[in-house]
Amino acid sequence: MAEAEGESLESWLNKATNPSNRQEDWEYIIGFCDQINKELEGPQIAVRLLAHKIQSPQEWEAVQALTVLEACMKNCGRRLHNEVGKFRFLNELIKVVSPKYFGDRVSEKVKTKVIELLFSWTLALPEEAKIKDAYHMLKRQGIVQSDPPIPMDRTLIPSPPPRPKNP
């Protein structure tokens, strides 16, 4: 597949989360990550787009979006961690798992993955206090019964932050 110059974040994400994909398409997933790193407002735009896809009623679209999110967290560094670590984004993940919002309509597969991601970030990103706040609130509410087992490949090792576009 030829690389498209100037593809937007939205375009990359639509391809990476297309419900017609037979399997996860890493070319588009990494393309999305790379595009985030290229754009000054990449992380801010990306989390908004991801939140929307993660809330998709189509399970496969949501699952792929979570895979993209996970890849972004590994590849886009601190700028993205900061955006994910805001309640503005975390609240959208909370809505997915909470019965007060969308939790009753969302599949267990999606909810489980959200909780695994949140928990893994509480360990890997201790400086992002809001992630811990959000996760512990889910526990207090009984939405998370116990800490999930984290697969070895989920140990998030943040990559070094990309060169900042502005000082």
Partner: peptide, 15 residues
């Protein structure tokens, strides 16, 4: 500045 006010407005969802 802009970031500080963003910080102030960033609240956990009421449950």
């Amino acid at each position: 500045l802009g970031e500080e006010s963003e910080e102030r407005d960033d609240h956990l969802l009421p449950m």
